[in-house]
């Protein structure tokens, strides 16, 4: 555990909590892509199946449980409790265009052809693109609430910090996982455009809106 890994995890946790609180406090999930949240729930479910097979640390287990619980709670709020506020008309990204190729790729490119390992690989690939429905929704409506941009910022920051963590681990521990690193790079790149808008607009007190 190094500082980049820890702050990455905390940044990830912050993102998840920010989103939950935003929906809970405003009693509305307007502007939030339910599809992205469904994909993240699927990501955590398929990745953390090792909760049943191996114990790494109390930290590891509790964080996994928190991530999974929060992602299911978020999906519940969007599709059940505050369904009336869900903006399904703008959440039109075709998720099968992500899930099917990612599923195929995880069968073809993995560390080991075993069920748990393929599901883990699937979750890594899927996480890298799971935010696309949300970004698509923002590009479609042309704007995002400021609190939603904070959520996206912490979510992007998390993977960027993981990249530094992997460089650190490569040099100091000889640890290197090509699948995680390539997917992590892809995931971080997807946020670059957003990071630019976040720094140039949101941090200067303006609302994030895209030119028509």
């Amino acid at each position: 555990m190094n500082i980049f890994r820890l702050t990455g995890d905390l940044s990830h946790l912050a993102a998840i909590i920010i989103l939950l609180l935003k929906i809970w406090k405003t009693r509305s999930c307007a502007g939030i892509s339910g599809k992205s949240q469904l994909l993240f729930a699927l990501v955590f479910t398929t990745r953390y199946l090792d909760l049943f097979t191996s114990f790494i640390s109390l930290y590891n287990t509790s964080m996994k449980l928190i991530y999974v619980a929060c992602s299911y709670a978020t999906v519940y709020l969007i599709y059940m409790k505050f369904k009336a506020t869900y903006d399904g008309n703008h959440d039109t990204f075709r998720v099968e265009f992500l899930v099917v190729p990612v599923g195929g790729l995880s069968f073809l490119v993995n560390h080991d052809f075993s069920p748990l390992e393929i599901l883990w690989t699937f979750s890594i690939y899927l996480e890298s693109v799971a935010i696309l429905p949300q970004l698509f929704m923002i590009s479609k409506t042309g704007e995002a609430e400021t609190i939603t941009t904070h959520y996206l910022f912490f979510l992007g920051l998390y993977r960027a910090l993981y990249l530094i963590n992997w460089i650190w681990r490569y040099y100091f521990e000889g640890f290197f996982d090509l699948i995680a690193v390539v997917a992590g790079v892809v995931q971080t790149i997807l946020y670059c455009d957003f990071f630019y808008l976040y720094v140039t607009k949101v941090l200067k007190g303006k609302k994030l809106s895209l030119p028509a």
Binding site: R5, D50, I56, S57, N60, K64, D112, F175, F176, D177
Partner: peptide
């Protein structure tokens, strides 16, 4: 690295 490593990352 070992192939069937324990996944300590989240």
């Amino acid at each position: 690295y070992t192939l069937l490593r324990e996944k300590d990352e989240l």
